[in-house]
Computed example of a mutant assay.
Amino acid sequence: MSLVYLQQESTPLLPDSIWALKWTSQNQIISGSADGHLRIWDPIELSTKPIYDLTSNPLAISSLSTTKNGKYALSTSLDGTVVLADVENGSIISKVETSREVVGQGEKELPAFTSAIHPENKCWAWSGRSSKLAIRPIEQDSLAQEQPTNGDDAETSGNGEGSSIKRGSIGGEGKSIDTGKGKFGMDLQFSPDGQSLALSTEQGQVIVLDVETQNIVATYTSHNKAVRTISWSPDSQWLYSGSDDHLIVLCDVRAGSKSGSDGKGEGAVAMMQGHQSWVLKVDASPDGKLLGSGGADSMIKLWDVGQRSCVSTTTGNSEIWGFSWQPTATDTFAAGKQFAVAGDDKAVTLFRAAGSV
């Protein structure tokens, strides 16, 4: 079986590469660029200017996540700055400099490279230059009182000399967890049901934690090089990982552990081969039937999850750092019929299944 997806409209060329991409449940596309900007787009009018263009982060944006309702987005830049944005209003409401403040009382600093926001906005997590990850609750009372800014005039918080950071709802007391694996966190993703948190490392591990207990419940070691990207299936039962070893690995987190250490899931269910270079992004379709991937080989691939096989390959113009499916909604295309990609070509481009109207 093969599928045909046709290239549709694209955004105007941006000043720099796009390293992060997310299509929200409110049918908006958010791009995070190497120029430190978050841009919010209307996919129906993608070729025009963005709805909002936020000067959100001081350096290149290395990760981007959103809440389930599409209202909030969390972005991380290479200097460790984490930003909470109100997507609906196109505003920045909180910033934290993770490289300049401790995680919590009695803790140390943990500079962030990647972060993730809980789908129900209950907490957020981050990791980076360490084997540790950190989790902080999101203070709802503080969130309700926060005054949005455009990203250029945040209040001073006292996090350091010359700081102009408003910590707000994401700046409370947190806790760090030592995974004991790897020396650098590459990607971090909450499961759609909010019960699990997955971390990938530069040494090839994928680690799964129980969000409530904050205990490690599984460690996968199927890759032998850096795992740059992970994605959960919509039902939170499958976990996909893409690596510098050119492989995509599928793990079933429901599988019982043979180690006797209370872990869930031991080893890979399947490995999917086809990329000729680093796998930079994987993303599961809303119905769970397809997996999309983009790589440093400029290839955009679609995989049939049930058959464990590649069913579509398109060669892009440059490295593909962002891939995001359009969420299912009553007023949009059916699940798995439209997705967006972005990367070093400095534009967001839509692809639509042939025959879709």
Score class of each variant (00 low, 15 high):
267 G>A: 03
331 D>W: 03
302 L>K: 01
294 G>C: 06
278 W>Y: 14
8 Q>V: 02
75 S>R: 00
351 F>V: 00
124 W>P: 08
308 R>P: 04
274 G>D: 03
120 E>D: 14
62 S>R: 15
234 P>V: 06
41 W>M: 13
186 M>E: 12
202 E>G: 01
245 D>F: 01
168 G>D: 08
263 G>A: 04
18 I>L: 14
156 T>L: 04
142 S>K: 15
60 A>I: 08
327 P>A: 11
33 S>G: 15
118 H>Q: 06
94 S>Y: 06
198 A>E: 05
344 D>E: 03
305 V>T: 10
169 S>A: 15
44 I>G: 09
71 K>P: 10
334 A>K: 14
83 V>H: 09
338 Q>E: 06
285 S>F: 07
237 Q>R: 11
141 D>H: 05
232 W>G: 01
178 D>Q: 14
140 Q>A: 15
352 R>C: 03
75 S>T: 09
234 P>H: 03
88 E>P: 04
130 S>N: 13
151 G>K: 13
148 P>I: 10
88 E>L: 15
268 A>I: 00
149 T>H: 13
138 I>A: 08
126 W>D: 07
229 T>R: 06
187 D>I: 00
182 G>Y: 02
216 I>K: 15
54 L>M: 12
85 A>Q: 14
349 T>L: 01
270 A>T: 09
55 T>N: 11
170 I>T: 07
291 L>W: 09
243 S>Q: 06
204 G>N: 10
281 K>C: 11
58 P>K: 13
240 Y>L: 10
285 S>K: 08
284 A>W: 03
133 L>T: 07
59 L>H: 15
91 S>G: 06
101 E>N: 02
206 V>S: 03
207 I>G: 05
241 S>P: 04
57 N>E: 11
161 E>F: 07
246 H>D: 11
194 G>R: 08
307 Q>K: 14
206 V>M: 02
167 R>T: 14
170 I>N: 11
220 Y>N: 11
13 L>G: 10
220 Y>C: 09
34 A>E: 15
204 G>P: 07
273 Q>A: 13
306 G>M: 01
210 D>P: 10
1 M>G: 13
296 A>K: 13
216 I>M: 15
311 V>E: 00
42 D>A: 12
139 E>Y: 01
63 S>F: 06
211 V>T: 12
282 V>S: 03
146 E>D: 07
350 L>N: 04
233 S>I: 00
347 A>E: 12
139 E>M: 08
323 F>A: 10
96 V>M: 02
357 V>M: 05
222 S>G: 15
115 S>G: 04
210 D>T: 05
283 D>K: 08
254 R>Q: 08
9 E>H: 12
198 A>I: 02
144 A>C: 09
90 G>T: 09
300 I>P: 06
18 I>P: 09
7 Q>H: 11
68 K>T: 13
202 E>A: 10
221 T>H: 12
349 T>C: 04
77 S>Y: 03
174 G>P: 13
207 I>L: 05
132 K>H: 07
321 W>T: 06
